[in-house]
Design a binder for these strands. Structure first.
Length: 219
DNA sequence: GCAAAGATTTGCT
DNA sequence: GCAAATCTTTGCC
């Protein structure tokens, strides 16, 4: 399924469950439904990390489907990708938003921990804590950087097999959305045409957890 | 070696 | 609505 061309694989990932096992009192089980993704391809895609060919960072994108590719953007946010397409072909699907199903309290705790690490002053920390405490469960993982914050995912997981039923972070089967909307990808204005306009963002408009971005529909 | 820019989020004007 | 925060990656000299 994930071995398909990356746009088809991205569609197929919508509705799939993202699962983090609990391994103690400090890290409890979390489950969410993937409701927004973007497809990225190889050298034919001017928006992809693989557009310059194979490098130290993107190497895993050339590997077999189902591996995790986690990278740091803007020096502060980690983003989770699922490697797709056949082994040897660079492709990955960015997980942009997840709808919490189980363990929302744990996700909120994880969000607070990230905010605590980042805050530069007591005032901004208090403000951030109030903001996160007031978030509806559905908004805890409604952005690529928020998915990793809520699920406790970082770059050390790059290369992990998300299809392994025994993995601490894994994908599990979930029901696909009734209707899928497509738009151009977000935040890739640096890319040339036709890559920039390619409609490789896929979302479940019925979900309350999709990200709110300039290129996304309003709710 | 160096400089530039980034698959984002948050807070303030 | 705009710009800062923050650090890694990558192209190029």
């Amino acid at each position: 399924l994930l071995a398909a061309p990356v746009d088809a694989a991205a569609r197929a990932l919508l509705g799939t469950l993202l699962v983090v096992d609990g391994d103690g009192p400090g890290r409890r089980r979390r489950v969410g439904r993937i409701v927004e993704v973007e497809a990225y391809s190889g050298q034919d895609d001017a928006a992809s990390h693989a557009r310059f060919g194979r490098t130290a960072r993107n190497g895993v994108m050339f590997g077999p489907p189902g591996l995790a590719y986690v990278y740091l953007v803007y020096g502060m946010h980690e983003c989770l990708n699922v490697v797709c397409d056949a082994d040897g072909r660079a492709a990955a699907v960015l997980v942009r938003a997840v709808e919490p199903i189980e363990g929302a309290a744990e996700m909120r705790t994880a969000r607070l921990a990230v905010a605590g690490r980042r805050a530069r002053s007591a005032e901004t920390l208090a403000r951030a804590e109030r903001r996160i405490a007031a978030l509806p469960d559905a908004r805890l993982a409604s952005g690529p950087g928020l998915v990793t914050a809520a699920f406790g995912i970082d770059r050390t997981l790059t290369g992990a097999d998300l299809l392994d039923p025994a993995a601490g972070l894994r994908l599990e089967h979930g029901d696909p959305p009734a209707e899928v909307m497509t738009t151009p990808r977000v935040g890739i204005d640096y890319a040339s045409e036709p890559s920039r306009s390619r409609t490789w963002r896929f979302l479940d408009l019925a979900s309350p957890s999709i990200s709110i971005r300039p290129a996304s529909p309003r709710r």
